[in-house]
Design a binder for these strands. Structure first.
Length: 401
DNA sequence: CGAGATTCATGTGAAGTATACCTTTAGGCTTAA
DNA sequence: AAGCCTAAAGGTATACTTCACATGAATCTCGTA
């Protein structure tokens, strides 16, 4: 291999990079200034302020679509709160858990276990009774006098899966605690989430309610400009590129996360092409790339069985127009299992897997009745052909076909 | 011709099972007095 | 006798299976106009 790798690295270092601080364009990044959310931040701060006097603030519920700044603002306010409490020696702890994370907090046991882990406990993945884990959690918290602010991100996902008993138990904790107090901030994408929830939970959890409206294109532009100032080096980004990203993201219910992704990926594309400024066409390329990558990411992390089911759907759709029905998929799935020498799951389970794939947005599945010819799910893929081929290759590799 | 019964293919809920892992407990062995 | 290790016993969460029943519109049936 006579490739001059050292030269590539050398060039990379010598060239003035487009980026100055790419982190500013990631979702983890918390900027000092959050435009167009002043109102919500102030409201949230007012609600939580009593915490500094060791009075338990009201529980809060935050609603809003993805990328409307819910998590960001909540985390921002809480970290500020944390900063002040530290300097004034107020015993306050903020815990953030995302309930959607597979294998982390997507069941009652796992959520409580995860919470206990946040407090330094070592909880096994399985084996303990859930009550026991609750007890451990209680006792750890209650060891000394403090106030805990518990942020449950995407709780709607958790409740949809395992019911609202978890929330009930959590809201009840306060009555059992002698020293500590716990305050819950729930974050949900689903505005109608509270409707079908135990009224007892509802009343105690929904003491305060906050709605984050989606950003419009202008607001997105402000946000991006703000971040771009930090992320890019001078002169490598233009107003028009930013405007384009904002416009694209505004089309999708004003998703700021998407806007940031667009900008970041566009920058990466320009950088890789060896240019020193981002151009508008990069944004178009970025949009394609993001769609491809996010789906790829999801598919890659799928359990093998789900991959097989998905692959079955691909195979059928390659030779035919949608829609495809559950029965067909199951047959093909079984033959795939024979080829990969894995034990096929039952149709019952596959039915659930199809539902999950639907939830993930990889496929569209709709239950329909075909009258005399029974009842089934009508399934189609929700991605473009080009991405479809890419995923197919990916599955082939993963399934070793 | 139309109301009501029938039918099909699979959705869906509940209960049961296998697996992997946990704590407790009872021996059994070693060790120190 | 006390201490320590090990293996069995008894228990749990989770992913999956088994069983059984629910669904709902196209189609069929049959009485009636």
């Amino acid at each position: 291999m006579g490739v001059a790798v050292d030269k590539i690295f050398e060039d990379f270092l010598n060239k003035q990079s487009i980026f100055n601080n790419k982190d500013a364009l990631t979702i983890q990044y918390t900027p000092d200034n959050i435009p167009h959310r002043e109102e919500q931040i102030a409201a949230l701060a007012k609600i939580l302020a009593p915490a500094l006097r060791m009075e338990k603030p009201s529980n809060v519920f935050v609603y809003g679509k993805t990328g409307s700044g819910k998590s960001l603002c909540t985390n921002y306010v809480c970290s500020q709160l944390n900063k002040i409490s530290e300097s004034k020696n107020v015993p306050l702890k903020v815990v953030y858990v995302n309930c959607k994370m597979r294998k982390v907090a997507d069941t009652e046991y796992r959520l409580i276990a995860q919470l206990a882990r946040e407090f330094g406990q070592n909880i096994p993945a399985t084996g303990l009774p859930t009550d026991e884990v609750y007890k451990i959690f209680f006792e750890t918290i209650d060891k000394d006098k403090k106030l805990i602010i518990l942020i449950l991100d995407e709780v709607d996902q958790l409740v949809k899966k395992v019911g609202d008993e978890v929330l009930y138990n959590l809201t009840r904790i306060n009555q059992e605690l002698k020293n500590a107090k716990i305050n819950i901030i729930g974050i949900s994408n689903d505005v109608l989430f509270m409707n079908n929830i135990d009224p007892r939970v509802k009343s105690s959890l929904n003491e305060e309610e906050m709605v984050f409206p989606p950003y419009d294109a202008l607001q997105l532009k402000d946000i991006l400009s703000e971040r771009a100032k930090i992320a890019f080096n001078k002169g490598s980004i233009s107003e028009s590129v930013i405007a384009k990203c904002a416009a694209y993201a505004a089309r999708e219910h004003g998703d700021a996360r998407r806007a940031l992704d667009l900008l970041r990926v566009a920058g990466e594309i320009a950088e890789r092409a060896g240019r020193d400024r981002v151009e508008e066409k990069d944004v178009d390329l970025a949009e394609e790339k993001i769609e491809k990558e996010t789906i790829e990411e999801v598919v890659k992390n799928l359990p093998v069985q789900s991959q097989s089911v998905l692959y079955a759907a691909f195979l059928i759709l390659k030779s035919r127009e949608p829609p495809v029905y559950t029965g067909e998929i199951y047959d093909v799935y079984k033959s795939i299992c024979v080829r990969t020498a894995t034990k096929p799951l039952t149709q019952r389970r596959v039915s659930d897997l199809i539902s999950e794939l639907d939830m993930l947005g990889i496929i569209n599945a709709k239950v329909i009745s075909k009258g005399r010819y029974g009842r089934t799910r009508e399934i189609s893929l929700s991605v473009s052909d080009e991405i479809l081929n890419k995923i197919e290759d990916l599955l082939k590799v993963d399934l070793k076909l």
